[in-house]
Amino acid sequence: MSIKIVADRMIDLSNEELALLNVDTISCYINMGDKSFSDLEDVFPGDVFNYMDETGKVAQTAAKSPALYSELFGRFVAQGDTVIHFACSSGISSIAQNAFIAAKEYPGKVYVIDTLQLSLGIALLVKFALQMIANGETDAEKIVQMVTAIIPNIQGSFLIDTMDCLYKGGRCSGLTYYAANLLNIKPVIYMNDTGHMTVREKLRGTQTRVLEPYIRNTFEKYPNPDLKVLHVVYTTYNEEVQKKILTIVEKFHKFQRVQFNEVSCNCCVHSGRNTIGLFYMCQ
């Protein structure tokens, strides 16, 4: 018997890294018009933004059904594996609920962790579990308990550059949208302790101007980061912005590694172009 790690595709690691880690994923649906796609399988962030440019609408997201989660879990259980599934936060999606429903079909063989996170916040928890397994831990329940205990140590936040997707998706009012554009406000959204996305602060200025206060304030609010790795996520690749981020981060902490990852379509749908996010483990 072995332990198989599975996660929602919003883990936002590259396919190459997922293969290296031997982590399987399940994607949510990305619906554009009358067509439905699987996130990062047959639709990618550029497609989401092109759809918005061409139609003036934002794509819609939907969770895979409990039956599809059951099918995924069952494949590994049939091989004799015990499955630990890392689900995107129940505070922002029904994904976790559907995974829990499916897991009931495999008592003692499938465990679901509501990570209360998304993106690289999920990845940090997955890597913690994989390290436990590499160190010889074979008790799935103990791994679940240990991972659950460190969830509050994960810092995850996003700096939103444009509120177009939030407005068109009905997640902010017209008044808020127009005021933000007029005053050049960049909201910082973070994952709170209950797994909900909440506005932490509102910065004013261009993205280039607010990058440093965003990074500084994040490190001040969530001190003592584990310096092994800082994950920086983005919805739109910009080499100059990435260089600036590295320079700013160096002012505050000497991370052994700063890893940049493009996010899933799901995140792009809700956050829009030029969004930047920081994820790390606090000690």
Rank of each mutant, 00 (worst) to 15 (best):
L118A: 15
L183R: 00
Y51L: 04
K109S: 13
F279T: 04
N153I: 00
P213K: 02
I101N: 06
L13K: 03
D12E: 07
G108P: 14
Y178N: 07
R209D: 05
R273F: 02
L125G: 08
D53Y: 11
F252S: 07
Y280I: 03
S2L: 09
F49E: 11
L118Y: 03
R171C: 03
F37R: 04
V110P: 06
M32R: 01
T148C: 10
Q131F: 00
C265I: 13
T25Y: 06
T208Q: 13
P45K: 08
V263M: 13
V77I: 10
V77E: 11
G108T: 10
N135V: 05
F49M: 09
Q145K: 15
T115E: 13
D161M: 01
I11Q: 04
I160R: 00
D34P: 03
V199E: 14
N22V: 03
C28N: 09
L278D: 02
S14Q: 02
V83H: 04
A19N: 15
T176E: 15
L118P: 11
V147L: 09
I248Y: 04
V232W: 04
A102S: 09
E41C: 05
M132H: 05
L203T: 01
L72K: 13
I92A: 11
V188I: 11
Y234H: 07
T198S: 09
M132T: 07
N266Y: 12
K104D: 14
S93G: 08
K64C: 06
E240M: 12
V43K: 04
F252N: 05
L72Y: 00
L130S: 02
A99F: 06
I248A: 07
E137M: 09
T82K: 12
L166E: 04
A99C: 12
I185H: 07
L183W: 04
I122S: 10
N224T: 02
V232E: 08
M163R: 02
A67T: 12
K109W: 14
S173A: 02
A19C: 08
L40F: 10
D24P: 10
V23N: 02
H253A: 10
N184D: 13
L13I: 00
T208V: 06
T25V: 13
F128H: 13
Q207Y: 01
N50C: 10
K254M: 13
K243V: 07
D226M: 00
L124S: 15
V112G: 10
M1H: 06
E17Q: 13
D24Q: 13
T198V: 14
L72C: 09
C28V: 11
L159I: 01
I3D: 08
D114W: 05
V233W: 00
L68M: 12
L130G: 03
T206L: 07
I189L: 15
F44L: 09
V83L: 12
L278N: 01
S157Q: 06
S14F: 01
K202W: 00
L13M: 10
A134W: 00
Q79A: 11
T176K: 12
K221M: 13
N31D: 14
I95V: 15
N153Y: 09
L40Q: 15
V269I: 15
K251T: 08
N181G: 08
G74M: 13
C88P: 07
T82I: 10
G121A: 08
